[in-house]
Design a protein around this nucleic acid. Structure first.
Lengths: 235, 235
DNA sequence: TATTTTAAATGTAAAACAAACATTTATTAT
DNA sequence: ATAATAAATGTTTGTTTTACATTTAAAATA
């Protein structure tokens, strides 16, 4: 026996929902689709699974090829399988969601690739079921960020507490009390205060902090309970 | 254009990790594999995706065909894609995890199907990467149950608070203070006290409760924070 | 040089929640 | 009538969360 007979074979694709943070807002990275059908329309970055790779490797490859991005936070989200989701032929797609430091890749993206960042509420309609994937990824981002410190993945190496607060406020589209917020983030023990200040955003300047990566990895699973009234941010 | 040329087509399967609770312990439902290779070995219930169904429908069908089980809690877990996970030919498998009331199906299982319940620590080795799937499903069960009231899916319509506590203690392999436990579950407002008692497990008897299904659905996303020190139960 | 402006940094009191802990009660069996 | 069993229940202490306003560092300006 060399094959399972009488079973349908189909294409398996990976699509990546890539989030970045520009200092004020969460953004989504999308590209103009390179192949027919819907060629030229806005789309998530995707590609077909190759014979010798697993899905994670496929997602890494797609990210690298289309954006040059490597080694970022990447998590399997869900597999989308409506029979008619791709009009050409049956294609099941595994959605991955990625978080990147937008500044690290801004240059290389605009020069070398045809990818573009959009504010979530200004994003064009995407092909196929990609809008649904984005919606789910947003939910997952809110859900996961309320329990785990993933939002640090969106920040540069050095960041200030007001920046961090702005990020959380952007993700949850709300505002937090700054005294309570800084007490809470500092209580995690994940932040290391630096000597320098960021002077761009205020006269007084705000101290830079770095993430303690060792503690970050060790405590990733801790339940931070960052978000008051998490009911509003259902998955 | 009718197809994406030069791309590899492959098989897509669904495998179900089915948990039940016998009143004392969490159990896993597995079957003897019906096809070569590894025919006769213990395996998760699975099947190949058919042309006109999506993955959820496929999982429902597999469950129904192999066990008669229908309309139970079923959630997509993760997609497994190592190139060599199935020795016959490239097959990617989407793992679903299911929670059922063991008593509801006990009869029909033993009579009509070749499925069998195993205690998690007495389960035989499973084929392919199914052991890995089970391990992940256990983590997911603990993770999710610490935040959402999914464990009610494992109980019969009427249950007592000591039973519920036993279930939580089984899932987390620990014990809870009964005063604090019952205060906590009752504070959710999800339980409706019945007039009858269960007299099987004690002389005094324990009052039955029913789940308020309306509130259950409305509050499913509430963060219950049932579990002290959730760090131990990482996903 | 003094004053104004701006955003950052910080503290406290009250309320809500979580944890630790023992006794009483309803029922059956003797 | 008494003993045995598991269920049901309450209180105190400590911790965490919330709500809320003032002071401080630095730059810009008068």
């Amino acid at each position: 026996m060399t094959r399972y007979s009488k079973q349908t074979r189909l294409l398996l694709a990976v699509d990546c929902i890539i989030f970045g943070f520009d200092g004020n807002n969460i953004k989504l990275l999308i590209v103009k689709r390179g192949i027919e059908p819907e060629k030229g329309k806005w789309s998530l970055m995707g590609g077909f699974l190759k014979p010798d790779e697993n899905l994670k490797e496929c997602a890494d490859r797609v990210l690298k090829q289309l954006t040059g991005i490597q080694g970022v936070y990447l998590e399997q989200l869900r597999t989308f399988s409506e029979p008619d989701r791709d009009p050409v032929e049956r294609t099941v797609s595994v959605a991955y969601f990625a978080l990147i430091d937008i500044n690290k890749y801004e240059q290389q993206l605009s020069h070398d690739y045809s990818a573009e960042w959009f504010l979530l509420n200004e994003k064009p309609k995407l092909v196929f079921d990609h809008d649904e994937m984005v919606k789910l990824a947003q939910k997952q981002l809110r859900y996961k960020a309320s329990l785990h410190p993933i939002l640090f993945e969106l920040l540069p190496e050095k960041f200030t507490i007001p920046q961090l607060q702005g990020l959380y406020e952007g993700v949850y589209d709300t505002s937090f009390d700054n005294r309570n917020f800084s007490r809470k983030v500092l209580s995690t023990g994940l932040l290391m205060k630096q000597k320098e200040k960021d002077k761009l955003n205020s006269k007084k300047g705000a101290f830079y902090y770095k993430l303690d990566k060792k503690k970050y990895k060790a405590n990733f699973q801790s339940f931070l309970n960052f978000i008051p009234n998490p009911d509003r941010f259902i998955i």
